[in-house]
Amino acid sequence: MLAELINPYYLQVASFILINIILGVSIYITLSTGQLSLANAGFMGIGAYTSALLTLNFDLPIIVGIMAGTLLAGVFGILIGIPTLRLQGVYLAIVTLGFGEVIRVIFVNWESMTKGAVGLSGIPHMGRELLNTVKDLGFDPKVLGLQNNQFVFLAIFLILLAVTVSIIAFFRRQNRSRVGRAFAAIKLDEKAAESMGINITYYKVLAFAQGAMVAGFAGALFAHVLAYISPADFAYHRAVEILIFAVFGGSEVIWGPVFGALFLTVMPEVLRFISEYRYMIYGLIIIIMMAVRPQGLIDVNILNWVKLKTSKRRQKHGTSSQKSM
């Protein structure tokens, strides 16, 4: 029963959705202080290459590689965040875009380490490694009635789901804390926020570093899910793709980029049946969105409306269930 329901194809798509959601969150964090950063593809690349190289060359466990990649991306985030503090809007976007390209060019030219444009293959695959580990422990997925590949993708999906949910939970908590309020104040008016006693330097760099870490984390996961990376994966296209998640879904609330990533990853798959036209329709949807809802699909108003609806329904259900108890 369970075995028939689990199709690696859908799990694979779901895994990419989850990775894209993490990327969407990464750009949301920097945007929540009003900084438009396009360096996230570069940070993603740093995370991916660091983790891939560590696990390939030093046989480190994947989890160590992922953590190292995340941290290194965060360090780069701080390094980039400090000198670009004075820049705003388009100027910041240009500098960060430039940074992303620099990272890509380094990957291309550092051939002894990264194999240049050919890319790194044979990176340890998260699911397959996990399968080998549980098999060594004497557990066979057949006990659950699962094929090996079903187990591999189910494991990846569940890990990514847990990770994504906890990242979203963390940033939702943060938004309601002092840090989140400071972010929001800086986004609305930097000068006013400063005069209220908010340390702008600290919070802006914090947001930048957090965004970089999350992007690096997503990159490391990407490397271990795909098992092959090349510099072209982290080029300008990726930066724009990440930006579109936030532009499409909306950047006011965290659910905006989450929805954007979900929708924009599912769309090309759902539209598969019209093969060569699917990207045209994809483009058309984005253009219509821009014209009709420039603030993105999901904003505070929508969220409040959804809340109102669900809370009403919940009240009804609530009373009835109390009675039955």
Binding site: P8, Y9, Q12, V13, Y228, S275
Partner: peptide, 22 residues
Amino acid sequence: VVEDSAGKQDQALTAAQKLMNS
């Protein structure tokens, strides 16, 4: 059964998964 990969690794992988499993 023809599937599009758009020249991207992740798309190619999902297309392959679809062909092999669905």
